[in-house]
């Protein structure tokens, strides 16, 4: 039985599924990092006048 393309398809699909999930995870991590930065900004702005006084 020579059906190597089925073998390649299975292996490629496996890595495509893992790759897609990891890509989504990386996007989510980027979004969380951006949210952390956004949270830090007003905190710095608020603490600035306190430091002056």
């Amino acid at each position: 039985m020579n059906a190597n393309h089925y073998l390649y398809a299975a292996y490629i699909m496996t890595w495509a599924i893992h790759g897609t999930y990891l890509y989504n995870l990386a996007r989510k991590a980027k979004r969380v990092r951006r949210e952390i930065e956004k949270l830090k900004k007003p905190a710095i702005a608020r603490s600035a006048p306190e430091q002056k006084s």
Binding site: M1, N2, A3, N4, Y6, L7, A10, Y11, T14
Partner: peptide, 9 residues
Amino acid sequence: GNVQRIFYY
């Protein structure tokens, strides 16, 4: 044949 190698994944 080679299709059996799918088993390893």
